[in-house]
Structure formats: C-alpha cells, structure tokens
Design a protein around this nucleic acid. Structure first.
Length: 407
DNA sequence: TCTGGGGTCCTAGGACCC
DNA sequence: TCTGGGGTCCTAGGACCC
C-alpha cells in the first residue's frame, strides 16, 4: 500500500503559523515580484480566484473582499517543509519527497488499518508542527493522488481507494484532474468522447500508447491499480539548475543587467557545489519588454566549457561574456536567467591534458568557492559574496511590497 | 520511373508537474 | 504601475556511421 501526504494550502498555512491572526481570514500568497497568486486559503478558493492569476488583475477585488495578501517567503516555507518531511519520515517505510509540500510513502508492515494509521500521522503533524495535511492511500501513485484530492474535501482529511470503491472514484473524476493529464491531453481525450477517468481506463491500451505515448499508458495502468511509477527513495542528482528572476525594475544598462545576472549565477553555482557537480555548459537568457505592451521577446545564448566548471569565478566569467555578446542597448530588460547543465560528478574529474596550469588554477578557484560556501553556511547565506554585487541600490531586486512590515 | 538496412546520438519542441 | 520560478520526460527528425 502506498500513500501521498499533501500539505493543505501550504504557503498560506505557513503564513498562518507565524501570524495566527490570519487563521480565520481569507489569505493569498504571491509569487516572486508580487507577480501572481501561488497559494490560496479555502475562503479565497471559494471566491473563485484561480491559481496563477496575475495579482494586478485582481488587486481591487481582493481589497474589496478583505483578503490578506502576502509576498511569498520561500526560505521560510522550505524550513517548515523540512520539519514536516522529517516528522513524516518517522512513520513511513520508503519515502519520496515529491515537492515542497508533498511526499509519497509506503506504509510500514506494522500498519494494519491503513486509514487509521494515516489518520494518526495527520494528527501528529498538525499537533507538533501546526500544518494541516491530507493523506490519500491507494495501490499506485496516480490513484493516491486522486485519493488525496478527495481527502481534501473530507473533514477527516484522509481517504483510501480500494478495489471495491475504485470504479466509483474513477467515474467521478474528470480527465483534467488526473495526475499526468494536462490541458492539451484533456482536450484531445474529450474529442474522443473520454470525459472521466472511468472512460479512460476502458480504452484499448494499444490505442492509448499510440496516441499519448508511454506516459499515457502508464497513467492508464496506474489508474487500474497496476504500479508503474515506483517510489524514488533516493533523491536523484539534478540534471540542470536554473535561477531566473523577474526584476523589480526595468533594467537598461549593460552594467545593471550584468550584475543582475551575476546574482543569478552565484545562486545557481552554490546549488551546483552542494550537489558535488560541475557544469559542462551554461545557458543564459534575457527577456525584454512586457507581453501585450509593444516590443518584447527573448534573447539567449549557450556556452560550453572545455572541461566542466564549478567555481563562482569561472561561471561568472562565462555569464559576463555571454551578456556582453547578446546585450543590445535600448531594449528595457525585465527578466533574466541562467541554466547550468551537462553535469558531471565534480569528485571524479579529469585533469587537463595539455595545460597543467589551467588545472592548477581551476582547482584553486574551486577550493576558494567551497570555502566561501562553508563560511556562508556558518554565518548566514550572504557572509561572503562577489564584490561586484556589493551595491547599495540593487535595482534588480524583485518587489515584495506585501510583507508584514510594509502593511 | 524503381528506395539498402540498421544503428546511435543530439537537439528542439511539446507536455506535464508543483 | 503591469503576468513566478524550477524542474522532468518523451518524441520526431536530422546528422552521422558502417
């Protein structure tokens, strides 16, 4: 038996943890730069405000309805997430942290009555940490997702799908609400007269695979109770690391754009080293203008290293030269990002064949970056950082006007 | 008029997830 | 005034090889 634990309205619940006065009030949490709604309390969901709605479009409505608006604090949410995951792992067999607010797990053999067991987990997390969760139990990941959706609508907060009730659950689930079926696939299924999960499992698997690839087939099998997606207890190393930001101001000058991008790559490089990886290449993109407002678009470029890089210095150098190459004056840049990719394990790396000096130099730079990481680990994340970022007025910093101190 | 056959690797683009 | 950020996987098609 397998289960999914999902924190309810996670970011909103985190805000309520530290600001109990928000408990009985409608609350939304905004994405970076106060761009759009990324978490809603039940009251706000009931108002019909959708996930991902741009904030500026509903600002007036939210004010009129007395909704409390919070700028997101991802670092805080991550810390709370870690607490929840640690506690949860004490009650599980294998466990896979699927996202910041969800984990799949297998029930330990000792759990005789699954529903009673997960009810206990739920109560413990609520009591010890204060975050409400819902838990769904079923034979497969896809079914446990459905069970969790149903658990959220139930006061008990837990739900199990068994051989006995599965068919009713499937018939009651629209295809768009199946995990793994997005907008496009749902539209296609509808065109073939498939509107709910029951219709979907009844279709010929060969037809499903041909039209919707192996992913579609796996989803169908999982809905029938046949596991195709095992719990990944080991966290896999990332295959790419991206850091991008929509900036708080429109950036015009090469200098400002350059600094903003250095800020991005330094964040990415830190993650890279935490994972003991080195990057074989870097991709960089800049976005200029706003959609629906005159000239807008993206410019991008890629860089490949002769041998994989890990140090701030090398990665900053690559990003700087990329920006010099693609920057065009007079555009008005609104967003930029850096993607590190083509990873290899930094602990087992070849030395340069033709340049001993380069290997020596690189290894010094890397030791320096790792030392800086350690110091930052002790004294907070910004104890040591590139001098070029030591500017008073960081024009690129995203807006966060809906923090408590601003309200 | 008149198709070799079989394979690998890479990339771009699409779709999906939270 | 003006729409987040960070990932993964799959497929088709091109380039290339013998």
């Amino acid at each position: 038996m397998l289960a999914l634990c999902d924190c309810n309205n996670f970011f909103v619940s985190c805000e309520r943890l530290y600001r109990p006065e928000l408990r009985c009030r409608p609350v939304v949490v905004l994405s970076s730069n106060d761009g759009c709604v990324v978490s809603r309390s039940d009251e706000v969901k009931a108002m019909g405000i959708p996930m991902g709605q741009p904030y500026f479009q509903i600002q007036g409505l939210l004010r009129k309805k007395g909704v409390v608006v919070c700028s997101g604090s991802l670092v805080m949410y991550k810390e709370i997430s870690e607490k929840v995951m640690r506690l949860l792992s004490r009650f599980t067999g294998e466990m896979e942290e699927y996202s910041i607010d969800e984990a799949f797990f297998s029930l330990p053999a000792a759990a005789k009555d699954p529903l009673e067991y997960v009810s206990g987990i739920r109560a413990t997390i609520e009591r010890w940490i204060g975050i409400p969760v819902s838990i769904g139990v079923a034979a497969t990941k896809t079914l446990s997702k459905l069970a969790t959706d149903m658990a959220k609508k139930d006061a008990s907060g837990v739900r199990q799908i068994t051989g006995g009730n599965a068919r009713d659950m499937l018939d009651a689930t629209e295809v768009r609400d199946i995990w793994g079926i997005g907008r496009k696939t749902a539209e296609q299924l509808n065109r073939h007269g498939i509107f709910n999960a029951g219709h979907f499992v009844d279709r010929d698997p060969v037809w499903v695979k041909k039209r919707f690839t192996v992913r579609g087939l796996m989803t169908q099998l999982e809905l029938k109770g046949q596991p195709c997606m095992p719990i990944a207890a080991e966290t896999a190393a990332p295959k790419s690391i991206q850091v991008s930001r929509t900036w708080g101001n429109v950036l015009e000058s090469l200098g400002d754009v350059s600094l903003a991008m250095i800020d991005n790559v330094v964040k990415a490089a830190r993650q890279l080293r935490q994972n003991h990886l080195a990057a074989g290449g870097v991709s960089v993109f800049l976005r200029y203008g706003y959609r629906h407002h005159g000239e807008c678009g993206y410019i991008t470029t890629d860089i490949y290293f002769d041998s994989p890089a890990q140090s701030d210095s090398e990665l900053i150098g690559a990003v700087k030269s990329s920006i010099d190459k693609i920057y065009r004056p007079g555009l008005g840049y609104t967003q930029g990002g850096v993607t590190l990719r083509d990873f290899s394990d930094a602990r087992f790396r070849q030395r340069e064949l033709f340049s001993e000096d380069a290997s020596e130099r690189r290894s010094k730079l890397e030791r320096f970056s790792r030392a800086a990481d350690e110091i930052n680990g002790y004294f907070g994340r910004r104890a040591i950082f590139p001098a070029s970022l030591a500017v008073k007025d960081k024009k690129w910093r995203p807006n966060r006007k809906r923090l408590p101190e601003n309200i």
